[in-house]
Simulated assay, not measured.
Amino acid sequence: MKKQVHDVRDLIYIHHNHYDQYVISYGIEFGEFIRSFSSKLKHLLLLKHRFNDADFNMHTLLEYVPQEKIEKLIQDGVYGYGNFCWLDFKEVDGLNELSGQEIAELLYLGHLKQHLKQPFYQKLRNQFAYLAHDDGYFNKIYYREINDFYEMLGNVIGIKLNQSQTKKTLFNFRKTRPLPPVNGKCLTQISQFTREGMVISLEKRDDTRQRIEIPIWVIGDFLDMDDMYDEAVNLDINACHAKLVYEKKLNEWKLLM
């Protein structure tokens, strides 16, 4: 079946596999992911890609992106790569210390998007393993610390909403105050939803003069994102399981369940 093309910006799907420390998502793109963290990643070790300006590591025979080229990678349009897989790492010296077994594990990880062992390496000091097919359509990301996921998700929601507000401002010439990110600690309250599989719909948000309400539904475990999307677009806003609420006067987010 040929995948349909969807607007991934207004719908976020999340399913957290707690045991294996990864999150499957739809609707969060590479650029949003990178920009959602306050501390910048040092280097990206590329396992699957089509980036033409990467550096080459002789020890692993793999290419990598140093920090100063990450923005260029974002602008390269990684969605068009098809498969796009990488790990972050701190120092090139650590890359040169990887054993043959560890390199084999990385190659397996990039090829099958499955781990032989948890993909966190002391020599690399990596926080993530990012495995995507049609980036933003199907992303499988391993997190060393799950709090990084909730921080990322809260910041991405803020990024998406602010981009949407910017577009509206261009047409009505009315300035709006930038929205703050959703606090990651607030989002940890729905950790059970993420383990069951949930959808956040920015498209179906209710935006009034007093507040913004964003509905959340528990939808289940999906690997086929077309099937997930077909079910998600028909969800009834009156039957949502929770709402993220931004109180404009207080300039703060809260979760209603």
Rank of each mutant, 00 (worst) to 15 (best):
K42G: 00
K42Y: 06
H43R: 04
L44C: 02
L45E: 05
L45A: 06
L45R: 10
L46K: 02
L47I: 09
L47F: 09
F51M: 11
D53Q: 06
D53Y: 08
A54Q: 06
D55F: 09
F56D: 05
F56N: 14
M58I: 13
L62S: 04
E63N: 15
Y64L: 05
Y64Q: 03
V65E: 02
P66L: 07
P66F: 10
P66K: 13
E68L: 02
I70Q: 05
I70N: 03
K72G: 03
I74F: 08
I74W: 02
I74H: 10
Q75V: 03
D76T: 01
V78K: 02
V78G: 12
Y81C: 01
N83W: 00
N83E: 14
C85P: 06
C85N: 14
W86Q: 07
L87V: 15
D88Y: 10
D88V: 12
D88S: 05
D88N: 12
F89T: 00
F89H: 13
E91W: 12
V92D: 09
V92M: 01
V92T: 09
G94P: 00
E97K: 13
E97M: 13
L98V: 15
S99H: 06
G100K: 09
Q101S: 15
E102V: 11
E102P: 14
A104H: 05
L106P: 04
Y108M: 03
L109M: 05
L109S: 05
H111K: 09
L112T: 14
L112M: 13
K113A: 14
L116D: 02
L116R: 10
K117G: 10
Q118H: 14
Q118E: 15
F120S: 14
F120H: 11
Y121E: 08
Y121H: 11
Y121W: 08
K123I: 01
L124I: 03
N126Q: 08
F128T: 11
F128A: 00
A129T: 11
A129S: 09
A129K: 08
Y130N: 05
Y130D: 07
A132M: 11
H133V: 12
H133S: 13
H133T: 12
D134I: 13
D135F: 04
G136H: 10
Y137S: 06
F138N: 11
N139W: 03
Y142T: 07
Y142A: 11
Y142F: 15
Y142E: 09
Y143S: 15
R144P: 00
R144H: 12
E145P: 00
E145V: 02
I146V: 15
N147F: 07
N147A: 07
N147W: 08
D148W: 04
D148P: 02
F149I: 03
F149C: 04
Y150C: 05
E151A: 06
E151D: 01
E151V: 04
M152P: 00
M152C: 08
M152K: 03
M152H: 10
G154N: 04
G154W: 09
N155A: 10
N155H: 12
N155V: 01
I157V: 09
G158A: 10
G158N: 14
G158K: 07
I159K: 06
K160N: 00
L161D: 00
L161S: 01
N162M: 04
Q163Y: 09
S164Q: 10
S164D: 12
S164G: 09
T166F: 14
T166L: 12
K167Q: 15
L170C: 03
N172D: 15
R174V: 12
R174W: 05
K175F: 14
